[in-house]
Simulated assay, not measured.
Amino acid sequence: MNLSDRIKIIISENSLKQKEFAKSINVTESYISKLLRGESGVSNSTATLIEELYGYSIDWILNGSEPKFSKKNNTKDFTPIQRKIISDIEQMDESDLIAVKAFIKSLDAYKRSFDKNEQ
């Protein structure tokens, strides 16, 4: 498995679009396209950022060496959708975070009212 295959796996397992993945690691979409075509490599700093955001080990990203997930990063225990949500939240500004918090509170209130109705 080559680097482009590993990048495709990261994008796929995290339910990302190339544009979203590029934005999350602060690179251009054209850079991601080059990676996917095997025309470019990944620097250590970019691999480190991918490890921090998505939990894949630097050695696996760069060389395909197992283990696939970093032992120092607990995101390996998250599902791909959980990792995607965390990545999205990390990119939000203050007003977006306030809105998400309000949504979570309203969802909790809804669940509690639903539980009371069942009793």
Rank of each mutant, 00 (worst) to 15 (best):
K72T: 15
A47V: 10
S43V: 08
R83L: 08
K17C: 03
L16V: 04
V42F: 08
L36I: 14
T28P: 02
F69A: 02
V42R: 11
F78H: 02
N2Q: 12
S15W: 11
M92H: 09
K105H: 02
Q91C: 04
D115R: 09
I9C: 05
E52R: 10
D88V: 00
S12Y: 02
E39D: 15
R37N: 15
A109D: 12
D96G: 02
S87F: 07
Q119D: 14
L97E: 01
K72V: 09
S87T: 15
I58Q: 15
K72I: 08
N74E: 10
N73E: 06
N63Q: 05
F103I: 06
S95D: 15
N73M: 04
E52V: 06
F21K: 05
G38V: 12
T28W: 03
Q82Y: 00
F69K: 00
S65P: 01
F78V: 00
L62K: 11
I98G: 00
G64R: 10
D59E: 05
F114C: 07
K34S: 11
D59C: 08
K23T: 14
L36E: 15
I7N: 03
N14S: 04
I50P: 06
N14F: 02
G38E: 07
V100H: 02
K116Q: 12
Q91T: 01
G38C: 15
K71E: 12
K72E: 14
Q91G: 11
Y31N: 07
K105I: 09
A109R: 03
T75W: 09
A47T: 13
R83K: 12
I9E: 14
I7D: 10
G64E: 09
I32K: 05
T46F: 01
K71T: 07
N74I: 14
I98D: 13
N2C: 04
I32R: 01
V27H: 00
M1E: 13
L62I: 08
S30R: 10
N44T: 14
